[in-house]
């Protein structure tokens, strides 16, 4: 469980957010949504332990190993795909890390690219390596900071589908920062909305979702309706 109590964060003499009270449970897929510069990445960094709150408190009871996926794929150019993924595996060093890396490369469909260097990969493949690095060794918690922002639509849809598959398959907790409303509605069960549009307060929105396959949900009327409802809600003065 992750819990923020009256949490506030000050950055360069400006309050990014104040009095935030949020709770996340194991197995949640939460999208953190907001305009550029609102502090959503900072909130993610606080949740992942990379940053601290300026006031209030943040606590987590989770002991599970976590992975982080940055907006850029953040691969080391001098390491090949296998070695880049291995970077995420050292958290739990062991003789079976080789097998774990091989397995995760299979999951992200990069087995054939294991010996390639990042500059030989496409944008989508680079992001897959980054995800594999975050997933390797059965990580239960994933922090993702606008990971698909720089990708083309086709690759983005493909990776979104795959991400949902990993989330279900490995029973993960995912925190996903994005500025795309449609992406957040498609992926998550819960939205953490930074003040935007006409809304002046931070809001939490729980999405009711059918248990249909990811791909069919993307084309369903229900999905479009939810996107429209959330958009309208943000537009209307409260």
């Amino acid at each position: 469980m992750f819990e923020l109590k009256n949490a506030g964060k000050e950055f360069q003499q400006r309050w990014l957010f104040k009095n935030l009270n949020l709770t996340a449970h194991a197995g949640d897929f939460i999208s953190i949504l907001g305009p550029s510069g609102c502090g959503k990445s900072t909130l993610l960094r606080i949740l992942s332990g990379l940053d601290t709150v300026s006031e209030g408190s943040f606590s987590t009871s989770s002991q599970d190993p976590s992975g982080f996926v940055f907006q850029e794929s953040c691969l080391l150019p001098w390491l090949n795909v296998f070695e880049n993924v291995a970077l995420g595996a050292t958290q739990r060093q062991g003789r079976d890390s080789h097998a774990a890396i091989t397995k995760i490369l299979e999951v992200v469909k990069l087995t054939d690219a294991a010996q390639l260097f990042p500059r030989q990969l496409s944008g989508g493949m680079k992001m897959r390596v980054s995800i594999a690095r975050a997933l390797v060794n059965n990580k239960k918690i994933l922090f993702m900071d606008e990971p698909f922002a720089a990708l083309d639509d086709f690759t983005r849809f493909e990776l979104q589908d795959e991400l949902l598959e990993y989330w279900r398959q490995y029973n993960m907790t995912i925190f996903f920062v994005t500025h795309s409303l449609s992406e957040s509605v498609f992926l998550s069960q819960k939205l953490w909305l930074f003040p935007q549009g006409q809304q002046k307060t931070f809001q939490e929105w729980v999405l009711e979702k059918p248990s249909t396959a990811a791909n069919s949900y993307r084309n369903s009327a229900e999905y479009f309706q939810t996107v429209t409802t959330v958009t309208e809600h943000l537009r209307v003065k409260k």
Partner: peptide, 26 residues
């Protein structure tokens, strides 16, 4: 790159590891 340093922080690499696997080749 700050992101790469954070990456090593996330994966709990120690100072020597960060030096040999990130800073020197970087």
């Amino acid at each position: 790159d700050k992101n790469l340093l954070e990456l090593f922080q996330v994966y709990r690499q120690n100072a020597w590891h960060t030096l040999f696997y990130l800073k020197i080749p970087g």
